[in-house]
C-alpha cells in the first residue's frame, strides 16, 4: 500500500510511545546504571566499568545455561513447527467439529504458566500422576528429580503440549484463506498430495509461520515458570535456563551488578536473533 507522508501521525503514536517508554526506558536505564557499578547499599557504590560484563561472560554456570537455552529453544521449535503444521492440515474445515476442535486445541494456551507446570508436575509424579504411575507400572525407571534425561524429556513434552496449539491455530487460519479454486485446479492437474502441500499450501503459510516462529522463539527463550515449578531447575542445574539463573541472581542473592550485566547480554542475544527474523519478514512483504 502506498503510504502518505505525514508527520502529524506522530500524535497518534504518542500515547503508545509515552506508555512503553515509561515501562521500558526508565527500567532499562536502571539496569545499565547497575551494570557498571558495585552497589553495597543505597549510599555506597563504586564505578567498576565493564568488570561485571567480563565476569558474566566468563562464568561457566551461565555459559552452560546459555547453551541449554539454545538447545531447548531449538529442540522445541523443531518439534512444534512440523507438528503444528500437521495438526492444522488434519483439522476439519467447517461445521461443529471444526469449532469443537479449535476450542479443545486452544485450551493449553490460556492456562497460567505456573499452572501448566503444576499440571505436569502432578501428571508425572510416580505416586499420584497418571503418566508417572503408568510408566512405573510398565517397568520404566522414570524419575524427573534424579535423572536429567527424564527431566529434559518431560520439559520438552510439556512445552510441546503447551505451545504446539499456537502454531496449529496460526497455520489453520492461514490454510482457510486459500480459495477452493486452487484445489480444484490442482485436482484437474492430478497433483499429488505432496505437490498440493508444497506448491499451494506451504507458500500461503510462510507469513503466519514466520509470526509463529518469531513468537515461539522469543517466548521459549524466556521460559521461566514452567520448568521452575516442574523441576525447580534440577536435578542439579540440568534444567536451569537463563531466566531462572537471572532471577535467582537478582532477587535471590541480590547481586544487582552482575545481574544487570547479565540482563543486558541476555536482551541483546534475543534482540539479535529477532532482528534477523524481522528483516526477513519486512523483505518478504516488500517483494509482494
Amino acid at each position: 500500500m502506498n503510504k502518505i507522508e505525514n508527520n502529524k501521525a506522530w500524535f497518534l503514536v504518542l500515547p503508545v510511545f509515552v506508555l512503553v517508554a515509561f515501562s521500558a526506558i526508565i527500567p532499562l536505564m536502571t539496569v545499565v546504571n547497575y551494570s557498571v557499578q558495585d552497589v553495597f547499599d543505597t549510599n555506597t557504590r563504586y564505578f567498576v566499568g565493564t568488570e561485571w560484563f567480563k565476569a558474566i561472560l566468563n562464568d561457566a554456570a551461565l555459559q552452560s545455561a546459555l547453551m541449554k537455552q539454545f538447545m531447548f529453544s531449538f529442540t522445541t521449535l523443531s518439534i512444534e513447527i512440523p507438528l503444528g503444521i500437521g495438526i492444522a492440515l488434519l483439522m476439519p474445515k467447517r461445521g461443529m467439529a471444526a469449532s469443537l476442535c479449535l476450542v479443545l486445541i486452544a485450551l493449553p494456551l490460556l492456562i497460567p504458566l505456573n499452572v501448566v507446570g503444576t499440571i505436569w508436575q502432578i501428571f508425572t509424579r510416580s505416586d499420584i500422576g497418571l503418566m508417572g504411575w503408568s510408566l512405573r507400572e510398565m517397568g520404566v525407571a522414570y524419575n524427573i528429580s534424579r535423572n536429567p534425561v527424564d527431566a529434559w524429556a518431560t520439559i520438552i513434552l510439556m512445552d510441546v503440549w503447551h505451545w504446539t496449539p499456537l502454531i496449529a491455530l496460526l497455520c489453520y487460519s492461514g490454510l482457510r484463506s486459500i480459495p477452493e479454486a486452487y484445489y480444484q485446479a490442482a485436482r484437474i492437474d492430478r497433483a499429488s498430495r505432496w505437490a498440493i502441500f508444497r506448491y499451494i499450501q506451504l507458500p500461503k503459510l510462510t507469513n503466519v509461520l514466520i509470526i509463529g516462529i518469531l513468537l515461539r522463539f522469543m517466548d521459549s527463550f524466556m521460559i521461566y515458570a514452567e520448568p521452575f515449578v516442574l523441576t525447580g531447575g534440577g536435578p542439579g542445574s540440568s534444567t536451569t535456563f537463563l531466566s531462572q539463573a537471572l532471577t535467582t541472581m537478582a532477587i535471590g542473592q541480590f547481586d544487582v551488578g552482575p545481574a544487570a550485566a547479565f540482563s543486558i547480554i541476555y536482551f541483546l542475544i534475543i534482540l539479535a536473533v529477532s532482528w534477523v527474523f524481522y528483516t526477513t519478514i519486512m523483505n518478504m512483504q516488500k517483494e509482494k
Partner: peptide
C-alpha cells in the same frame, strides 16, 4: 519506532523484575 516497540515484546520479563520493583 516499530522495531523498538517490537523489541519490548522480546525483552525477557526476568530482565525487568528488579527495576520494575524499584520503579
Amino acid at each position: 519506532l516499530f522495531f523498538w516497540l517490537l523489541s519490548n515484546k522480546m525483552a525477557p520479563p526476568a530482565v525487568f523484575v528488579l527495576p520494575f520493583f524499584q520503579l
